[in-house]
Amino acid sequence: MALIIARFFIGIIIVILSCVEVEYYKTIVISLLAIGVLTDVFDGIIARRLNVSTQSLRRWDSTVDQLFFISVIAATYLKYPEFYEVHWVKIALLVGIELLTYLVSFLKFKKEIATHSIGAKIWTLFLFATLVDVIIEGNSTVLFELFFWIGMLTRLEIISIILILKTWANDVPTFVHALKLRQGKPIKRNRLFNG
Score class of each variant (00 low, 15 high):
residue 77 Y to D: 00
residue 78 L to R: 12
residue 82 E to R: 09
residue 82 E to D: 13
residue 82 E to M: 11
residue 85 E to F: 09
residue 85 E to S: 09
residue 85 E to C: 12
residue 86 V to G: 04
residue 87 H to I: 03
residue 88 W to F: 12
residue 88 W to Y: 13
residue 90 K to A: 12
residue 92 A to D: 00
residue 93 L to F: 15
residue 93 L to I: 09
residue 93 L to M: 14
residue 94 L to N: 09
residue 94 L to A: 07
residue 96 G to L: 13
residue 97 I to V: 06
residue 101 T to G: 01
residue 101 T to W: 03
residue 101 T to K: 02
residue 102 Y to F: 13
residue 103 L to H: 14
residue 103 L to F: 13
residue 104 V to L: 11
residue 104 V to H: 11
residue 106 F to E: 12
residue 107 L to I: 09
residue 107 L to Y: 12
residue 108 K to I: 10
residue 108 K to D: 05
residue 108 K to H: 12
residue 112 E to C: 05
residue 113 I to S: 10
residue 113 I to F: 02
residue 114 A to V: 06
residue 117 S to D: 01
residue 117 S to L: 00
residue 117 S to I: 00
residue 118 I to G: 02
residue 120 A to W: 06
residue 120 A to N: 09
residue 121 K to H: 07
residue 122 I to W: 08
residue 123 W to A: 05
residue 123 W to S: 12
residue 124 T to H: 04
residue 125 L to E: 11
residue 126 F to P: 07
residue 134 V to G: 09
residue 134 V to W: 08
residue 135 I to S: 08
residue 135 I to H: 07
residue 135 I to T: 06
residue 137 E to M: 04
residue 137 E to C: 12
residue 139 N to C: 05
residue 141 T to V: 06
residue 141 T to S: 10
residue 141 T to E: 11
residue 142 V to H: 07
residue 143 L to R: 10
residue 143 L to F: 04
residue 144 F to A: 11
residue 144 F to T: 11
residue 144 F to L: 02
residue 145 E to A: 06
residue 145 E to F: 11
residue 145 E to N: 15
residue 149 W to K: 08
residue 152 M to C: 10
residue 152 M to L: 11
residue 153 L to W: 03
residue 156 L to I: 08
residue 157 E to W: 02
residue 157 E to N: 00
residue 158 I to T: 06
